[in-house]
Nucleic acid binder design. Structure first.
Lengths: 144, 144
DNA sequence: TATAATTATCTCGAATTCGAGATAAAAGGA
DNA sequence: TCCTTTTATCTCGAATTCGAGATAATTATA
């Protein structure tokens, strides 16, 4: 196979593998009535503490208008609450409620365990190599 | 880093890398007024010849109702045409029009070249190893 | 200080995807 | 053959995401 076809193939395989992995990884999340984006937002706040809406958007890689939507939904579900920033009135922080905290205490370890099972086909070293290569790729694709 | 955190990290890196790669790979496609799904459908027919709507759905990994939508759009753009199957009236084939063929003759080599550039950070062997590992992962995630 | 530029969030409408269910045709079984 | 099941496509409404632009607050500049 020539180099171009190899790259095309890698792209296809990458796309398909991630699609399968996602499907599997999101099962627990869906059961709790959350979608992947909602979970990603909760996960970010869970690990980093309360965050501005803007930082959430950067981390979760969605447009600002979409975060507003997701945060609205999580707020309706009472898993998070908005908190105005006292020093800059443009900024809104988002924090977990007690219920949000409780759900993540339950869900996050499950999520890690699911991923561990999904990736058990690779040993530690293979994972580390793949992480490095993917980082390199991502960086390369990012900077142009 | 323990094994669970390593798996979590691999998942995050995989997600981010593919996101960056996609963004880059889809630039040419967007310029022509196509979205990634539309391109994927065209690419499939381009390489495999006319196909039933059902097979397109399997290949492109979207729900049947979504294919109907995409095929409608491509038909409106006159890039494909529907052709009823003569022997089974439930089935509809989809074929490229002359214009669709012309667009893909232009776009497909560009697409391969873009991907080649994106992946140039890895050498042939690294690509081959990654393909194998991703296949293994995808297969593992798929079968449960 | 007044004005301009930037930043953070939100509103709105459009595009895309899905799932449930409808419809029509084909295949299988009594 | 008649009835049931399966298959292929489509319709419809809901969910999610985006981009453009609005609003309000802050910061930078003349």
């Amino acid at each position: 196979m020539n180099n171009e076809d190899l790259s095309l193939k890698l792209f296809v395989v990458l796309t398909r593998a991630l699609s399968s992995i996602r499907k599997r990884a999101e099962e627990d999340i869906k059961e709790l009535g959350l979608n992947p984006t909602e979970f990603a937002v909760l996960e970010f706040i869970y690990s980093k503490g309360e965050q501005s809406i803007q930082k959430i958007g950067q981390k979760v890689l969605i447009a600002s208008s979409s975060i507003t939507y997701v945060v609205d939904k999580l707020e309706k579900k009472q898993l998070i609450k908005r908190k105005p920033c006292p020093t800059d009135r443009r900024i809104t922080f988002v924090a977990l409620t007690d219920e949000g905290q409780a759900i993540m205490d339950e869900l996050f370890p499950q999520h890690k365990e699911s991923l561990t099972k999904i990736f058990e086909g690779l040993d530690r070293e293979e994972k580390q190599v793949m992480i490095e290569q993917l980082k390199k790729l991502g960086y390369h694709a990012e900077k142009k």
